[in-house]
C-alpha cells in the first residue's frame, strides 16, 4: 500500500486573475482509499478536475504510475484514471448497458468489453436486474452505482469520486460507501473521495487531506483528521 500511484507537486490553478489552488502537493498511494475534505469553496473539486485535466493547471507536475503526464481527460483515462463527477452522473436517455459500454469507449476489443460488463453486473447485481432499463428510470442511489460501474469499465488504477453522497438519502449513502470499499478490496483500485460526509467514510478511508482556501492544511490518518477540534479550525478558517 505504500507505493505512490499519483504524485502531484506544486499544482496551481488560476481562473482569470483569481488563484484557486496555490502550489498544492498531493499523493495517492497504491491500493488506498483517500479522502479529500474541506469547507465549501476550498478548492477540492477544482484540484481533482485539474489533476484529471478538466481544468488547465497554471503550474506544477502530475506524475501518475511513474510517468509525468500533462493532464487531459483522454490522457488520464488511457493512463488508468477514472473520474466520477458531481451532478448528473449518467446518460439518462441511454440504457444501463449503453452507459457501461460508454465507459469503455476507448477500448476496441468487443469481447473484452462484453467480458468486463459481465464482471461488473455480477459485482453490482442491481445493474443486472435493470440491464435494459433507461438510466433515467433509476433512483439516485442506483444511478450512483451505475456511474461507479461505468467508471470501472476500463479497470482503472485510480478512481476519483467527487462527492458521491450528494443528493442521496443517508441509508443509500452508506450502501454506496460500502460498495466503494468493496471495489477497493476486490479490484485493488485506489480511490480518492471528495466528501463532506466524513462520518460515513471513517470506516472506509485509510488516509486523508484537508484543503482550505486552495492550500493543503493537514494530512494524516482519517481519525486524526476527523478530530473535531481540527475540523472546527478548518471550517472557521484558523488552520489556513
Amino acid at each position: 500500500m505504500s507505493q505512490s500511484l499519483l504524485q502531484v507537486r506544486g499544482l496551481s490553478v488560476q481562473f482569470g486573475h483569481n488563484k484557486i489552488i496555490h502550489g498544492v502537493d498531493f499523493e495517492v498511494r497504491d491500493g488506498e482509499i483517500l479522502i479529500l475534505m474541506g469547507p465549501n469553496g476550498a478548492g477540492k473539486t477544482v484540484l481533482l478536475k485539474a489533476i484529471f485535466g478538466l481544468f488547465e493547471k497554471l503550474s506544477g507536475t502530475v506524475e501518475f504510475d511513474g510517468k509525468i503526464i500533462h493532464p487531459s481527460p483522454v490522457a488520464m483515462v488511457k493512463a488508468g484514471m477514472s473520474f466520477v463527477g458531481q451532478g448528473k452522473r449518467v446518460f439518462s436517455s441511454m440504457t444501463i448497458e449503453e452507459n457501461l459500454r460508454m465507459g469503455a469507449f476507448l477500448w476496441t476489443d468487443k469481447k473484452m468489453i462484453n467480458q468486463r460488463i459481465d464482471e461488473l453486473v455480477d459485482f453490482f447485481p442491481i445493474l443486472k436486474k435493470k440491464f435494459r432499463t433507461l438510466a433515467y428510470n433509476m433512483s439516485g442511489g442506483e444511478q450512483q452505482i451505475l456511474s461507479l460501474a461505468r467508471a470501472l469499465m476500463m479497470n482503472p488504477k485510480l478512481l476519483i469520486c467527487d462527492e458521491p453522497s450528494i443528493g442521496l438519502a443517508p441509508k443509500i449513502v452508506q450502501q454506496v460507501f460500502e460498495k466503494i470499499e468493496e471495489v477497493n478490496k476486490v479490484f485493488g483500485t485506489s480511490i480518492v473521495i471528495v466528501e463532506h460526509n466524513l462520518k460515513s467514510l471513517l470506516k472506509v478511508a485509510h488516509r486523508g487531506y484537508i484543503i482550505a482556501q486552495g492550500k493543503m492544511v493537514m494530512e494524516g490518518s482519517v481519525e486524526t483528521l476527523a478530530d473535531s477540534k481540527n475540523l472546527e479550525k478548518v471550517f472557521f478558517g484558523e488552520l489556513v
Binding site: M76, S93, R101, M102, F105
Partner: peptide, 23 residues
C-alpha cells in the same frame, strides 16, 4: 454503432462525455 452512441451521449450529457475520455 459506437460512434452513434457517442453522439447520443454528447446530446445527453456533454460534461460526462469529457470525463470518460471522449474527444
Amino acid at each position: 454503432t459506437k460512434w452513434g452512441m457517442a453522439i447520443r451521449a454528447i446530446g445527453d450529457n456533454p460534461e460526462l462525455t469529457t470525463t470518460i475520455g471522449l474527444k
